[in-house]
Design a protein around this nucleic acid. Sequence first.
DNA 1: GTCTATACGAGGATAGAC
DNA 2: GTCTATCCTCGTATAGAC
Lengths: 214, 214
Amino acid sequence: MTRPKSKKIENGKPVRDAEATQAVILTAAEEEFAQHGFTAARTEAIAAKTGVAKSMIYYYFKDKEGLYWAVLKRSHADLVQTLQKLELEHLSPDIALENFLRALLDCVSRNPKLPTIMFHEAVQNQGKYYKHSDSVSIDAALIAILEKGVSEGVFRQLDPFQSAINIMGTCLFYFIGAGNIQQFPQGKRLLSKAMLEQHTQEAIALILAGVRQS
Amino acid sequence: MTRPKSKKIENGKPVRDAEATQAVILTAAEEEFAQHGFTAARTEAIAAKTGVAKSMIYYYFKDKEGLYWAVLKRSHADLVQTLQKLELEHLSPDIALENFLRALLDCVSRNPKLPTIMFHEAVQNQGKYYKHSDSVSIDAALIAILEKGVSEGVFRQLDPFQSAINIMGTCLFYFIGAGNIQQFPQGKRLLSKAMLEQHTQEAIALILAGVRQS
DNA sequence: GTCTATACGAGGATAGAC
DNA sequence: GTCTATCCTCGTATAGAC
């Protein structure tokens, strides 16, 4: 990131920067894996996007799977950290829920590829990554909030486990469809800043209204 | 389906049944494509599941893509038909919405692989299938219901387009995670009849409460 | 209609020069 | 560290016997 990663010449010499090259590869790989998943992703396609030689992938990440895991790790880091430092225990459940959702939606809005990456990993690979990393507690936190809310009577009678899944769906499905729907009639792109903010609003409103005791 | 599709001998002769063989292939392919998507799916794996020779795929469906499209068509048929014959115009929006959701959830509960098939198609293939077939009106119907509900004041102020996506997410995300989560603590399988019915209940409750004017 | 055997291309991975 | 050239496995698709 410190050096210009764009092309290869600088005062007569080819530029060599391990960190920069790795980062470029990771970013390109993230895109490829998000769209195609592990198996269908092509190392050649990743290399093409970076402009560096295909063999650099193997030099830095050993093989396709090593690159894949590196992508998973980097992609999830932001989300996991953000949610971990959230400290929701003392808050009333409805506030806790709103904070949780806002943090979640902020993260995925910053990295809209994450949901599809997760999706591919879950479906194709049966979520093996989530078993090897202790990052899975995302759902657990949400379930805890819901349980507390139900027992305190601020939320209606609902099944915390089922509802947690459905709530995640409300938040994340948007990003999966984004590649498909792309732009609807008036050319509004689903991943534009305005639309992402609107999605955050709408999702939170729908969920809060949906769980609240009436 | 009329003949025993299990194995190949019947009164001394090998059984040959075009329809049955096609059906068997389609079913196996549905499973494979649901898990892996088009590119990562392996014709070899499909053949292995059926017990028939790999070349039968090419005999009946020309190539992998032909098989894929056949799977898409067969998988969507039930859903499209069910939703088309729903006649929701005369109903009040909240009843219309509930009927719509129940029909949708019934369909996908009967064929839990459909959501993952749809999502692979959407993400990997950018939904090309949905452009070539006129089956896409699923979302449109939901948006119409929401618009009507908002204008009549039975639903709160919400964006029909965004909310339609989020509602679909609430219903369908469950099935994507199903492969991943598999079974939680007490061995409840997400795709068991009891759990599917509970999901239907919970999703409908969450959505109706979420959109209703309070 | 169904099988076995095989041709052929795509794509993951390595060797070795620079 | 980066590139080019090459190897070799795997997977799609076809040929041809039964």
